[in-house]
Nucleic acid binder design. Structure first.
Length: 258
DNA sequence: ATGACAACTCATAGTTGA
């Protein structure tokens, strides 16, 4: 089973690129972030035409997540919205079951600028995520929490530590919160298979970042022990970032034994 | 220190993102 994640940066603006990538790489499950679409305008039928059943949690203008699943046994929604704050109206969290695997699609807050309310929101969101992930661990369901974490875990995960030093993505508080998740027993799949670092999932549109390979790794797949035992490979579909009208993120994927 | 790109919106300027 192959599970992928793609911060699509606008599902409607990017639809041809997204359908093309689905047909080429054929993931069983594709988690999307930043669909930037309300529930009403989400192009569900376009995915059904190419063999995927979508569920989605939209929001007008920005944010928004979706889970596409292939075949005649589509994913069933378990939870929509991260628990722990009734005031939080952002669409950043969607959880579903697919063929015995719990798939959690997240779009973690960016947190810039800092200091300020956006950074505070990011850190609080990460605390809430840790609580939910601890519940999932306790249930011992084979689980993957996959998506745009907006955290550069280590210095090896960024093209220039100096250029990004003051960014919310690599503040000590952001990194500490990320490593607390790993400490709770979750496996960072891409780090496991690419331990020397130097693999990026995001390249800025600005300043020729793609052409200069100035990127960093902020999209992650964290696996519970039950699923880590089934992990055979993981990677980045870097080719997608080089295309016309590309998202600023490249897709990531994990391959599991059935 | 600043801006550079891009998508989106009660659009033609402002918000958000990373």
């Amino acid at each position: 089973m192959k599970i992928a994640s793609f911060n699509i940066n606008g599902v409607k603006a990017r639809l041809p690129r997204l359908l093309e990538w689905l047909e080429e790489t054929q993931p069983d499950v594709a988690c999307l972030q930043e669909i930037k679409s309300s529930d009403e305008t989400f192009p569900a039928h376009e995915f059904e035409k190419v063999g995927y059943t979508p569920i989605w949690h939209g929001q007008k203008g920005f944010n928004g997540v979706a889970i596409l699943s292939k075949g005649d046994e589509p994913a069933t929604e378990v939870l929509r919205g991260l628990p722990g704050d009734d005031e939080d109206t952002h669409s950043r969290y969607l959880e579903a079951d697919y063929k015995g695997v719990r798939v959690v699609c997240i779009y973690l807050p960016n947190g810039n600028p800092l200091p300020g309310p956006k950074f505070d929101y990011k850190l609080k969101w990460m605390e809430r995520l840790r609580i939910r992930m601890a519940q999932l661990r306790a249930e011992e369901i084979p689980t993957v929490v996959i998506g745009d974490y907006n955290v550069i875990p280590e210095d090896k995960d960024v093209w220039s530590v100096k250029a990004m030093a003051s960014d919310a993505l690599m503040q000590p508080e952001s990194r500490d919160a990320y490593f607390r998740l790993l400490g709770d027993g979750w496996t960072d799949a891409l780090d496991l298979h690419h331990p020397r670092g130097g693999i990026w999932t995001f390249w800025d549109y600005q300043a020729g970042a793609w052409q200069r390979d100035h990127g960093f790794r902020i999209d992650h797949a964290l696996l519970s022990p039950e699923l880590a035992d089934r992990l055979v490979a993981s990677g980045v579909d870097k080719f997608a970032r080089g295309r016309e009208k590309a998202s600023d993120h490249a897709p990531i994927w994990i391959e599991l034994t059935d």
